[in-house]
Each structure stands twice: as C-alpha cells, then as structure tokens.
Amino acid sequence: MASDGAGAAMGMTRSTLLKLVAAVIAIGVPTVGFFVASAQNRPANAMRESIQELGFYPVVPPTTLVGPGSVYHVTRDGRFYRTICRADETDVGKVLVRSPSEETIAHELQQGEYKAGGQVADFLNARLGRNIVETVTYRLSDVAMLEIPLDKNEEIFVKLTAEPGCKAWVDRLLDEKEFVCQGQSVLIASVQYSLKTRAGGDIRTEVSAPEMSEMTSKLAEAVIETPKALVNADLRIEGGKIVSGSGLSYGVKVNPVCATRPDDWYPRRIPWSLYGRAKNFVFIDLLGG
C-alpha cells in the first residue's frame, strides 16, 4: 500500500512538473507559429488600434447590441461578444453616466484620421468604371463614452443571475472554461469618410446617388466591417464626406475581472496581448486555475 501511495505521489509530482514546464515554455518562449497564426487572424487596423490604446476592446462589427450592464460570452481575445443575459434598459438608465474622461477620449479619437488602403479606392473606381477617387480617409465623429459605476454594475449582475435561465448559461459556460464578462462602459460614435477626387471636386457632382450608396456599403465593409443594412439605414452625405453608422458601439470595456466559479483561483481577465492570452491558457487550461 505504501509503495502504491508513493507511486501515486510520484505520478502527481511528475504531472505537476510537466505542467510547470509547459507554463514556462508557454509564457516565456511562445512559439513562432502561435504568433504568426494570431497575427494572420487579427489584421492591423489603425482605428481599432487607437480605440484599444484608450483602454477599449474594439467591437467588430460595430453594433447597438453591446453595452454596459449586460452579461456576455466573450472570446478570449476580447473581439467577439454574444449576449447571455441582457440588462433591463430601465435598470441601466438609472445608473448610466457619462465618463469623466469622455472629453479627452473624444478629442483623441476625433483628431485621428486614418487612410483606407489603396485597394478601396481602386475598387470604387472599378465599380464606377472611371478613375475618379484618389484617396479615402475616415475618422470617428460624435464620440461619447457611457459607463456604469462598478458597484451599481454588481447590483445589475446579481439581479440578472438570479434568473434561472441566465444563471444556467453562466454556470454552463464557466464550467467549459469560457469567459463570461459584464459590460461596464461603451464608446459610441459615427464614422465620417472623406473621398478625395482626382479633380479635387465634390464627389457628389461626379457620381449618382445610387452609386454613392453602393460605394458607402463597400467603404464600411472594407474599413470598419459595418453590416450593409446598418449603413444604408443611416446614411448622410455632407459635402464631400459620407457619414454612417451613427450611434453604434465601436469599443467596450468589461468589468476589470470577469465571472469565475467558486473554486477558481486564477482571475479571468481579457488579455491585451498575445502574452496575456498565452498566460491565460497556461493558468486556466493547463493548471486548472
């Protein structure tokens, strides 16, 4: 019996050592393949990078369905959100406030102008059958940031998870080591495109209204991945600029720590980097945190 116990202890020790070795490898020396694959899955986008630098996870595509108070199943890279339990608008409205840092964030984003890739202008010219568009630039406008104080957000979370259906899905996802996070603040805005023609004139004088609508759909798809239906439902043309996607959520912040099970010892945080993703994998998946 003693030898059996010693063997079991040795097996546990070896298992623990193997996990620790894996942790060192995963955190300290991430493989080249991991970085390459992740880079291929997350193409660079200047606007999204700017949103992320301000502490928000970019919402792709922008939507009205992601906001403070509600509970979401979030992919581990923070890119995609699926609603688990939607907060009551009345409960949210009572505690939703404009962020004190809104003015600074709005200034930062509205000052930034981003150039769309040359392929976007090439596509528009090909659709029009003539070489009119020279460059396409875009920026966020009408930026606002709304948030719920953490203590009030906790009250909403408790109310939501008191519902059997909500709690069942939260528990099920946590058992599967998925991320369950509550929205805490949201960045809403519109996107303003500027089309510079080769002749330097107003784009409206050189294309028809249907052509302009078609170009806008392509711009949104190529630049910010906004669904065509949302764009065409709210399209304004101001001078040589196209304004679309008004009042959509372009960035979101969740609570600093996402939900966990009672026996979880490692906090669930959406990572900002590949290093953070690797660290989560090691401590949650390999070490059972």
Rank of each mutant, 00 (worst) to 15 (best):
V158I: 14
Y193T: 06
A189K: 03
Q192L: 13
I203M: 01
T205K: 13
P210Y: 04
A199C: 10
T197M: 03
L195G: 09
E206K: 09
E176I: 08
A199P: 05
V191E: 12
L160P: 13
E211R: 10
C181R: 06
V170E: 04
V191P: 03
D202Q: 04
Y193K: 04
T161A: 04
L195Q: 06
S194F: 05
Q184E: 12
S190A: 12
V158A: 12
S208W: 09
G183Y: 00
L195H: 03
E178C: 09
P210S: 08
G165P: 01
R172E: 07
P164A: 13
P210H: 06
G183H: 02
R198Q: 14
L187I: 10
G183T: 01
Q192H: 03
G165W: 07
R172S: 11
E178K: 15
L174G: 00
P210A: 06
Q192S: 12
A199W: 03
V191S: 08
K177I: 06
V191Y: 06
E211F: 09
T197S: 07
A189V: 05
V170M: 08
L174Y: 02
T197L: 08
L187G: 03
V170D: 00
F157T: 15
K159T: 12
Y193S: 05
G183C: 04
K196V: 15
A189P: 04
L160K: 07
K177Q: 11
G165T: 07
Q182T: 10
C166M: 08
C166I: 08
A209P: 06
K167P: 05
T161C: 05
L173Q: 04
E211L: 10
G165A: 10
I203A: 02
R172P: 02
V186R: 08
T161E: 03
S208T: 15
K177S: 12
V180H: 02
A162Q: 14
V207S: 11
C166V: 08
T205H: 10
G200R: 01
A189S: 14
Q192E: 14
G183K: 01
V158Q: 12
A162R: 14
I203N: 00
L160I: 14
P210R: 03
L160F: 13
T197P: 07
W169D: 15
S208Y: 11
L174A: 00
K196E: 10
V158P: 02
V207L: 13
L160A: 15
S194W: 02
S190M: 00
C166H: 04
V180Y: 00
Q182C: 07
M212I: 11
Q184N: 10
V170P: 01
D171I: 01
C166S: 09
I188F: 03
K167L: 11
